Computed example of a mutant assay.
Amino acid sequence: MTDIIKPLALVTGVGPGTGASIARRFAAGGYRVVMLARDKARLDALEGEIADSIGIACDVSDPVALARVIAEVGNPKIVVHNAVGGAFGTFEKVEPETLQRNFEINTMALFHLARLTAPAMVEAGEGAIVVTGNTSAQRGKAAFAGFAPTKAAQRILAESLARDLGPKGVHVAYLIIDAAIDVPWQRELQPTKPDDFFISPASIADEVHHLAHQPRDAWSFLAEVRPFHEPW
């Protein structure tokens, strides 16, 4: 019997929360998942947990490293850019280098990923690029001066990609996560909040998977998820 060749899904920013859940969801959906992060030990542990997955230590802000990954694993059918560079502070407190670094992770990495992977998707006539974002992509609060500008640029870049690649058969979507994600550090910051205050990484992963598999006659670009009682 011939082995079934699984399609490839590439996920950046595979930490213990959202990124790992996205990797699990696509693996459960029949993909061979390539997981990118800087923490090799975490990736090794996830490789042992997720069947037929590949963990590669990679700094997504390095375009040479990204190109090396694609050359090694091949062309993905799905790309999920979940890696994020963040910082808290007003413009007077955030160092310029921090803003630049976050721009490289959030926006330039998406630019390079698209250049590396979209041509093969266009040639195949199918594929998806999904970007995880948050409300900083839509507004610039005072304490997010080192972060919000890069997420807003990321959203606009994703829209440019969507308008270019959509007519060529490649779906680009941007998911805004308007919630505190249920990970340990968020629980420690807000220890009195009830369970349903948080959004689970698994729920985010389900929505990412859904966006990547929408029917071609009903593609979304901008999608949002939030807990049912979140004010907005």
Rank of each mutant, 00 (worst) to 15 (best):
G29E: 02
R25C: 07
V60I: 14
P76V: 03
I78M: 01
P215Y: 05
S160I: 09
F198M: 08
E92S: 10
V79I: 14
R115S: 12
I54K: 07
L113K: 05
T98N: 12
A205E: 00
G86L: 15
E123I: 10
T107C: 13
V84W: 10
V79R: 05
R155V: 02
L165P: 02
P231E: 08
N82V: 05
I5A: 12
G55R: 11
R68W: 14
A158G: 13
A57V: 00
I181C: 06
V208Y: 09
P76R: 07
G85Y: 08
D3H: 12
S220L: 13
P16I: 13
F221T: 08
N82P: 09
L211D: 00
M108W: 12
G74C: 08
Q100G: 12
H112Y: 12
L116N: 00
K168V: 06
K141L: 15
A212L: 06
E92W: 13
V172P: 00
V60C: 08
R24Y: 01
T18K: 10
F198Y: 06
D62N: 02
A27K: 04
G74M: 02
A179F: 05
Y31K: 09
A87Q: 15
R155W: 10
K77C: 04
A57D: 08
E92R: 14
A173L: 04
R187T: 01
K151A: 07
A137N: 12
G166F: 06
H213Y: 06
Q190W: 15
H112M: 13
V33L: 07
W185H: 15
V170Y: 05
V33W: 00
L165C: 06
R25V: 06
V64Q: 05
P119D: 03
N106W: 05
S61W: 03
V64I: 15
G125I: 03
D196K: 02
F26S: 09
D196F: 04
R25I: 08
A57W: 06
T135I: 13
D3V: 14
E188V: 13
A152M: 11
G86P: 01
L222P: 01
L110I: 12
A145P: 00
K168H: 07
G133Y: 04
P16V: 05
R42P: 05
H209Y: 15
E72R: 13
F144M: 13
G30D: 07
A65I: 11
E188L: 11
V34I: 11
I177D: 09
K6H: 03
P119Q: 08
F91N: 01
N75H: 08
V69L: 01
M108C: 07
A124Y: 01
E224Q: 13
A145L: 08
V64T: 03
T18Y: 04
F221H: 14
V208W: 10
C58M: 03
V208G: 07
S136N: 10
A65E: 14
R25G: 03
F197N: 03
